[in-house]
Computed example of a mutant assay.
Amino acid sequence: MESKLCEKLCQTCRTDSAKMNAEEKAKFMQELSGWRIASLQGVEQLIKEFDFSNFEDALQFTNRVAEIAQQEGHHPALVTEWGKVTVHWWTHKIKGLHLNDFICAAKTDKLARETD
């Protein structure tokens, strides 16, 4: 079942936009599979590793995630290695999690399902 988050578009986020509260994060985490919330250098991020059989497939996935990022105007940290891509979504302007991060994580999951 596809997440309803995939149907949404990222919203413009400003430096005074509110970070998601615990209840909101818990609600949207239910729509994601395999993602975790971690605090890196004091900033909460959504993180997930995607496995591939070789570097070329990992690189193609990275490029397709980059296309999503450009379309949404919301950009992750992407670490591409042999057989693995680690994706970090967070909102730079608010130094934390926003609805946009959950939307992009859901779209990343959809992309991964399409490339299987």
Rank of each mutant, 00 (worst) to 15 (best):
F28Q: 11
N63V: 01
A26F: 00
A26Y: 00
H74Q: 03
N21F: 03
K19C: 13
V79M: 15
G83D: 00
M29N: 08
A26P: 04
F55N: 06
P76I: 00
T15E: 01
L32R: 08
S33I: 02
L59K: 01
H88C: 05
L40G: 08
S33P: 03
D57K: 05
S53M: 10
K19M: 13
L40R: 12
D57V: 12
H88G: 02
L46T: 13
L78C: 09
F28D: 07
A69I: 02
N54R: 09
E56S: 04
S17I: 07
F50P: 00
P76K: 03
K27C: 11
H88M: 03
L78I: 15
F61M: 14
H75Q: 03
V65T: 00
L40I: 14
G73E: 06
E44Q: 12
W82Q: 08
K27L: 13
E72D: 06
L40V: 15
F61W: 02
V65Q: 01
N21I: 05
K25Q: 04
A26W: 00
K27G: 11
V87N: 07
F61T: 09
I47T: 12
I37M: 05
T80S: 02
S17Y: 01
A66C: 06
V87Y: 11
A58Q: 08
V85C: 02
P76E: 12
P76F: 10
Q60D: 00
R14G: 10
Q70V: 15
R64Q: 13
A77F: 08
A77G: 04
S33V: 02
L46S: 13
Q45M: 15
G73D: 06
Q71Y: 10
S33K: 01
E49L: 14
K48H: 03
E23Y: 05
G42H: 09
P76V: 01
F50K: 00
A69R: 04
V65S: 02
A38E: 01
V43M: 13
I37E: 10
A26N: 09
W82A: 10
F55C: 07
S53K: 07
K19F: 14
M29S: 09
Q30I: 11
L46A: 14
A18V: 15
Q41Y: 09
K27A: 14
H88R: 09
A66I: 13
T62Y: 05
A58D: 13
T62G: 06
G42V: 05
E31N: 14
S53E: 13
E67I: 01
M20E: 07
L46G: 14
L78R: 03
L40E: 03
G42K: 08
G83L: 03
E24P: 07
K48S: 07
G34P: 01
A26L: 10
Q30A: 15
E49A: 15
S17H: 04
K19A: 12
I47R: 06
E23F: 05
M29I: 12
E49N: 15
A22K: 13
A58W: 04
Q30W: 08
M20W: 00
